[in-house]
């Protein structure tokens, strides 16, 4: 095609496919930030947002998964109300309520998980990847998310690092649960598409 239209440089079929997936996963991450499951009592709502980073890494690999989360952040900076509670703007990412580091952490986590699971730029089919590697990839993603998010929070809110870590510690079991759900979804064959 591109030889017939010299002025138009078409995007390759594979790239279009991955790009469309990355954009929709960015939009899904934005959607998941708005929808949470209410837990009984005074427990914090069960946020589904980490799934965005998990699926970006698992399904798209480091480059396209990273692009998905970068697009998510940029859409928020450009003014789409894509962060939790419908927030937007560069200010929310940089300082916000101290949780901006977790947003950047999602981007780092998607790249880390994608790199471990796919070991290259091109995503490979997930049935070629063993469960232990998928779990290891997502665990590394979680570590990356907290490694960026907690010190960031401590510096914005002026809390000591230990205090910031102890505020976030109750969320860790929930995140491990989300990790188990994500791997379960992949293993359960829910994502096999005709």
């Amino acid at each position: 095609m591109s030889q017939e239209h010299e002025s138009v440089d078409l995007v390759g079929d594979d790239a279009v496919e991955y790009f469309a997936k990355a954009v929709l996963i960015a939009a899904l991450t934005a959607g998941l930030a708005q929808v949470s499951i209410q837990l009984p009592g005074s427990l914090p709502p069960f946020s589904l947002q980490p799934f965005g980073a998990f699926f970006a890494g698992l399904l798209l690999g480091p480059v396209w998964g990273g692009l998905a989360l970068a697009v998510y952040l940029l859409a928020g900076i450009a003014g789409a109300p894509v962060f939790s509670s419908g927030n937007a703007g560069l200010g929310y990412v940089l300082v916000g309520q101290g949780t901006g580091g977790f947003l950047v952490g999602f981007l780092v986590g998607a790249v880390v998980a994608g790199g471990i699971v796919h070991r290259g730029v091109t995503p490979r089919p997930l049935d070629e990847v063993g469960v232990p590697i998928q779990v290891a990839g997502l665990l590394a993603a979680l570590v990356a998310i907290y490694a960026v998010g907690v010190p960031w929070m401590s510096s914005v809110l002026g809390l000591e690092l230990g205090r910031a870590a102890s505020i976030m510690a109750p969320y860790v079991p929930f995140d491990l649960l989300k990790l188990a759900i994500a791997v379960g979804i992949v293993q359960g064959g829910y994502l096999v598409r005709e």
Binding site: F19, V23, A75
Partner: peptide, 17 residues
């Protein structure tokens, strides 16, 4: 890709919510 992606997220975000 980042530029096109940002505009597409604006389009698809309300649909996915």
């Amino acid at each position: 890709l980042l530029g096109v992606g940002v505009s597409l997220v604006f389009r698809f975000f309300p649909l996915l919510v």
